[in-house]
């Protein structure tokens, strides 16, 4: 069992790194996008190996689904296939490579010395041990709310490290909507800013109308709208 997961780790790692190298080496952008797709799917496998099943599913849905579709749309929309077949690489970037190698040497050395050969600790199977004097959810699989905080089983953050709860939607969501609810809301504002920024950046500006469309009557608020949109673009750059 253990050997099988180690083999899977090497297979997925190799596929992910090969996909990344494909991105760097392929001249045609759509080939790079497809190799990135391989890379993202292998990374989802690695998250599943780490028992983070929710993250693995979201990796497939968001990275391999949404973001890749966006990238492929842009490549097709701009017709990038023949754009830079001759001048794919920047020569100036080569100067950064020795620095990169040094950085990686130090980083890898530091990571090995910190992590060592620590194997994955088995996830807890039995009842949760409560800190003295504090009530907590002791049995995570019985459907009973032991500590009376209206959070049952995996939905209680006490159970986040137990094998049947680790990486499930309930356990991650209990943390996300419990202690991390403020960052969660801020992330939703960030996504809203992303939507508004994308519309502002790609939408048609006032005064940039297509000739076939008759110019609309000037509204009293249009000048204020124009100044407001440039302000919004500035803040978007800061985000």
């Amino acid at each position: 069992m253990m050997d099988f997961s180690v083999a899977l780790l090497y297979v997925f790692s190799g596929m992910a790194v090969a996909g990344g190298l494909g991105l760097v080496l392929c001249k045609h952008p759509i080939h790079g996008a497809i190799s990135l797709l391989f890379s993202m799917l292998s990374l989802a496998g690695i998250y599943a190996l780490l028992d983070a099943h929710l993250i693995a599913a979201l990796q497939v849905i968001i990275y391999a689904g949404a973001i890749m579709i966006l990238v492929v749309y842009i490549i097709m929309l701009l017709d990038l296939g023949s754009a830079d077949a001759q001048t794919v690489y920047r020569k100036a970037g080569l100067m950064g490579l020795p620095l990169l190698a040094l950085l990686l040497l130090l980083l890898g050395q530091g990571m090995i010395s910190v992590a060592g050969d620590a194997a994955a600790p088995p996830l807890a199977q039995g009842p949760v041990v409560c800190p003295p004097g504090v009530a907590c959810e002791t049995d995570c699989g019985d459907g009973v709310d032991q500590d009376g905080d209206n959070m049952t089983d995996c939905a209680d953050t006490d159970c986040a490290g137990v094998a049947i709860c680790f990486g499930t939607v309930e356990a991650v969501g209990a943390n996300l909507l419990g202690p991390f609810v403020l960052p969660f809301e801020i992330a939703s504002v960030l996504l809203l800013a992303g939507i508004v920024g994308a519309i502002l950046l790609t939408g048609r500006k006032p005064g940039e109308l297509e000739p076939s469309v008759p110019p609309p009557a000037i509204q009293p608020g249009s000048i204020a709208d124009a100044s407001g949109s440039s302000e919004a673009q500035d803040t978007e750059g800061a985000v």
Partner: peptide
């Protein structure tokens, strides 16, 4: 090397390097 924390960390190091080279 078995399935250790350092193998995951080294793998992520390699991925970061590939992205940075890109």
């Amino acid at each position: 090397m078995s399935e250790a924390l350092s193998s995951y960390l080294l793998f992520s190091c390699a991925m970061f390097a590939v992205g940075l080279v890109g």
